[in-house]
Amino acid sequence: MEKYQISMLVGITIGFLARIYLLRVDYRQYPSYPHGYVTHISFGFIAAALGAVAIPAIMQPDFTAVTFLAVAATQFREVRKLERETLENLDASELIPRGKDYIEGIARVFEARNYLVMAVALISSGATFWGNWVYGVAGGGLALLAAFRLMSGQVVGDISEVVPASLTFKESLLMVEGIFLMNVGLPAHREKILKEGLAVLIKPRQDNARATLDNLGQRQAILHVASALLGTKRESGELEFSPAVGKDIDTGKIAIFLLPMEPDMECLIEAIQRVPILESSLRRPLATRAGRAAAD
């Protein structure tokens, strides 16, 4: 085989495998319908092919081939749109919606992953072209590892401490450790909530975390993940048993209440700890002088 053929083959293969690997990793964010997989794997293949072809094309030399990369960028912006629209449509029929912020985060990840795949394919085809296929495989693997490291964001457990908390009623007001969550009218409902409900407190570790957890989209994402993993007794049209979230306005602690199908406190804490921090909610007031000065 010609040199450029080998390097394209290695680039495409490694890039394609990278896309499949990245699909596997984000199981919690991914809606599990098979057609979704087909879409993303096909896009991944296109991305890998575009990345793999660039260096052999330049060396041939065929400079116009590089303009394909520009086409790719347009193409993958469509991926984001596609994923956003699908999830937004599905969100309307969720009992506990993901919320716009979470959806935007997922859509962004799907777009970015195609660029990562392109980069991985580019690196491994380049390494094959100037070395041999062993270099190509190794280079692609390293690039994938690096990408994975850089792209794995923080989770709620990284920026805060999640601890069990107690539920109480002050007359009709549902409180978690003194934080007001909602008004529950019927005594029968209050009893059920006290008996079967779970509550946790999310204590931000520092001011950056506090500002991040202030974001309503981030809180909605936490509610969605918690009730998706543990189940919820909320029913359409019956709002008493909706999960709820509230903030202690003086300390920034976040209280979460859930009436789960599986009342298991450890699982709830673990589920909440592993909720991703959304890119759109991430705040770093401590990175500025005014923010640092205000913090003390």
Binding site: N183, V184, L186, G237
Partner: peptide
């Protein structure tokens, strides 16, 4: 609350 699909709140 079931008919109207609303939540019951108690003004105490």
């Amino acid at each position: 609350s079931r008919i109207l699909e609303g939540a019951i709140h108690d003004l105490e």
